[in-house]
């Protein structure tokens, strides 16, 4: 028998496979393809206190082995989330995690407080979206700002707080330590890497926003390295992500120090990726006689 259960900040996931914020909506669209009950957890698209319209189009562009996006956190806001998305999520036996975004600390706290009496299992705080002008990444590229917002949110949060970190920093270990020092229950990384693409035929930017966040298999080695560095820096659990396409990729992140993983851009490439990763992890455990999946966390030698 193998045990794929993982506990993060007191919340038990049936397996370590989750969905990366912004790639899976609130689960409705991909519920047509996969049984959401099989997921370890489902992390929603960013939710703000009021509806956000997002950026102009084009918002997405393909790059070698990856993609750029500059959606700009378009979302219907917390009222619609509570009325429509949350009841949908509540039907499933998976840990629902809301990704929270905002322009000010107060915006974040408002959403966090409204989650208090819900079945949401964890809060993932987006301080790392590279595609909006105010908020988000502004809190995630400076240790003092990150410490401050984490502390404010922790003071109000009823669920475990996971701070989602940006790779667009000089020292990821320093950012991870700031989140931990402020009381974060965990961290997730990496968000997308800021990038750019130019259409040489039209001499125009591929994205209306000019810059966008790079995701997909192209960023995986960077993400594995950063998860490893963060794991060396802190003792709180880490949710690792960045280009995971297969179970082998997921295991690599766990060996680097992640307690759980997220499938992101690859949902767009193969809507069944999450399930294939879950099944592949089980096969790996059987093949190598790994009885407890937690034995893989940080087990790189």
């Amino acid at each position: 028998m193998i045990n794929t259960k993982i506990t993060i900040a007191g919340i038990t996931l049936k397996n370590p496979v989750m969905t990366a914020s912004g790639t899976f909506g609130s689960g409705m669209e991909y519920g047509e393809f996969v049984d959401l009950n099989r997921l370890g957890g489902l992390i929603t698209k960013g939710v703000s206190n009021i509806p956000w319209v997002g950026n102009p189009t084009p918002r997405v562009a393909e790059t070698y082995g990856g993609m750029l996006n500059a959606i700009g956190l378009q979302n219907p806001g917390i009222d619609v989330f509570l009325e429509r998305d949350l009841p949908f999520l509540n039907q499933y036996d998976t840990v629902s995690v809301i990704n929270v975004c905002g322009k000010t600390v107060e915006d974040y706290v408002e959403v966090v407080e409204r989650m208090a009496d819900t079945k949401i299992g964890m809060l993932e705080i987006n301080v790392s979206c590279p595609n909006i002008k105010e908020g988000a990444i502004a809190f995630g590229q400076n240790t003092e700002a990150l410490f401050h917002i984490t502390k404010e949110i922790k003071a109000k949060a009823k669920q475990p707080v996971i701070m989602k970190l940006s790779p667009n920093v000089t020292d990821i270990g320093e950012m991870a330590r700031a989140a931990e020092a402020a009381g974060a229950d965990g961290i997730s990384l990496i968000n997308t890497i800021t990038g750019m693409k130019i259409d040489i035929h039209k001499r125009k930017f591929a994205l209306a926003n000019k810059t966008g966040g790079l995701s997909g298999p192209a960023i995986k080695p960077v993400a594995v390295r950063m998860v490893y560095q963060a794991a060396k820096a802190v003792s709180i659990p880490i949710i690792g992500m960045g280009g995971i396409a297969t179970a082998e990729d997921a295991i690599e992140f766990m060996l680097a120090g992640a307690s759980a993983v997220c499938v992101g851009a690859m949902n767009f490439v193969n809507p069944y990726t999450t399930i294939e990763v879950i099944e592949g992890i089980e096969s790996y455990m059987k093949k190598y006689g790994v009885k407890e999946i937690s034995d893989l966390i940080g087990a790189v030698e």
């Binding site: 669209e29 991909y30 047509e32 189009t57 084009p58 918002r59 997405v60 996006n69 378009q74 949902n267």
Partner: peptide, 8 residues
């Protein structure tokens, strides 16, 4: 499929 909000 309507999840990413890329094509609005």
């Amino acid at each position: 499929v309507g999840a990413c909000l890329g094509c609005v």
